[in-house]
Design a protein around this nucleic acid. Structure first.
Length: 432
RNA sequence: GCGAGCGUAGCCAAGUGGUUAAGGCAGCGGAUUGUGAUUCCGCCAUUCGAGGGUUCAAGUCCCUUCGUUCGCCCCA
């Protein structure tokens, strides 16, 4: 394909072709079922919002806001941004629609495209999709455990192996302030040995140094003080309760003191779900945590909240390595020849579809031999043949493709014997 | 934003400076004018992402550019 004379999808975006959509629907269906069973309701918020929402919600100093937002000025001279994540929009909707008044607790989930202006690599695009959930209005550690359990339920339901749940607590803002000071004290003597990025972060966001992938930096960080020693007794206690309750539910996790989330709004519980194999360098399938300060930060009442998001494309990558998508089964394939037969075939297709049969009509008007070849490849259980003779007699030939058996019956009989047909269809499918 | 690899048909590709660009899959037509497999035959790239340069000669070497892949940063 030449770049100059054809129109291509924008860098970092891609088409999801029909074969792949089967996987998407699989995930969506599983999510819908599991979430609604836990009394979560779906929410759909706009794909773009005021830039200010993300800048304030996610944090000006984060990479997402600092360099990855798709921001533009619209014709009304407003700065708008394609949402880079889902939580800020959900929280805005929660405040704006007074959901805190309507019920003391909101359990919500969402699914949709997100946008970040980043360079593309395996498992990372500019338009990608996230599935997420939020519990707004509960500070109970059981809410943390519930959302984690639902994430695990979904992944188990999909049958994904080799996933690891990493858990940490980032405490309250006050806890973090104390820890941050201790961390800077520890790291400052090593400043010269840190990689340039980490040197930079030492003053701006020292906790982010903890999850650096640079080997030399990691070595220094290994002996760094852990946040756990700086958690206030309350924070410590709720961290322990989350762990205890996860264990009660039989959910395995690894404590990871170096787990730091990239968005500013997290407090207390932070977790990530990592694929140990099957993804490239971007191996986080999902992540989330508690964000007790966000609702008030965005102008709502003090509201405790917890949630997570998963990357659908990353889930897809794993799923496709494991299983092939289920093909949608076809009941009948109709071949026809001659104008009268073609007209009857069209009506017959319509009638069969209304009777609940998945029916494909051959539109080619090519030789019967060619049409049969396509019937065979369609995977249909039965082939209905309408030629000149059948059209004249008002009959149709029904051929069961697996066995090769063929019989003639009148078109009205065919439509009157729907139940019998269904049973025979069943038997025909069991044949091979 | 930075680094590296790769761009030959719808897809997978051979080709490593020498006349007309292998092969396979898919597709289309025919052998088979109303019956699916297999087989056989034919068709399917005036051109190698684009532009420029070197050379008697460029898919092949050089430059630019675009795309793509993987990675860094960071995240889903």
């Amino acid at each position: 394909m030449t770049a100059t004379d054809s129109l291509n999808a924008i860098k970092g975006t891609r088409d999801i072709l029909p074969e792949e959509v089967a996987y998407w629907q699989w995930i969506e269906q599983a999510a819908r079922q599991i979430f609604s069973r836990a009394a979560y309701r779906e929410i759909r918020t706009p794909i773009f919002e005021q830039t200010e929402l993300f800048a304030r919600g996610i944090g000006e100093a984060t990479d997402v806001v600092g360099k990855e937002m798709y921001t533009f000025i619209d014709k009304g001279d407003r700065s708008v941004t394609l949402r880079p994540e889902g939580t800020a929009g959900v929280v805005r909707a929660y405040i704006e629609n007074g959901l805190h008044v309507k019920g003391s607790l909101q359990r919500l989930w969402y699914l949709g495209p997100m946008f970040r202006y980043e360079n593309v690599q395996a498992g990372r695009q500019r338009q990608f999709h996230q599935l997420g959930m939020e519990v707004l209005g509960s500070a109970d550690p059981r809410a943390d455990v519930e959302v984690i359990a639902l994430a695990v339920d979904l992944l188990n339901d999909l049958g994904l192996p080799n996933l690891r749940l990493d858990l940490n607590s980032v405490g309250t803002p006050e806890d973090r302030l104390r820890y941050r000071a201790a961390l800077v004290d520890y790291l400052t003597p090593y400043q010269a040995e840190l990689d340039p990025d980490s040197q930079n972060r030492l003053s701006r966001n020292p906790m982010r140094i903890l999850d650096s992938k640079i080997a030399a930096t990691q070595k220094i960080v290994e002996a760094a003080p852990k946040i756990w020693s700086y958690l206030a007794p309350d924070s410590q206690q709720r961290f322990e309760r989350v762990q205890q309750q996860l264990t009660d539910l039989g959910i395995a996790y690894s404590l990871n003191p170096r787990l730091v989330r990239g968005l500013d709004y997290y407090t207390h519980t932070a977790f990530e779900i990592i694929a140990e194999t099957g993804l490239g360098a971007q191996n986080a399938v999902g992540g989330g945590g508690r964000y007790d300060g966000l609702v008030s930060e965005l102008g709502g009442p003090e509201t405790a909240a917890v949630g997570w998001a998963m990357g659908l494309e990353r889930l897809l990558l794993l799923l496709q390595q494991l299983k092939s998508a289920p093909a949608s089964p076809l009941d009948f394939y109709i071949v026809s020849r001659s104008p009268a037969a073609e007209a009857q075939a069209l009506r017959l297709a319509q009638a069969l579809r209304h009777a609940g049969f998945a029916t494909e009509l051959d539109l080619s008007a090519s030789a019967f031999g060619k049409q049969f070849k396509r019937a065979d490849r369609s995977g249909a259980a039965g082939c209905l043949i309408l030629g000149e003779a059948e059209a004249e007699a008002g009959t149709v030939q029904l051929k069961w493709l697996a066995s090769g058996e063929q019989e003639a019956l009148s078109q009205t009989d065919l439509l009157n014997q729907v139940e019998t047909l269904r049973q025979r269809m069943q038997r025909s499918l069991e044949l091979p």
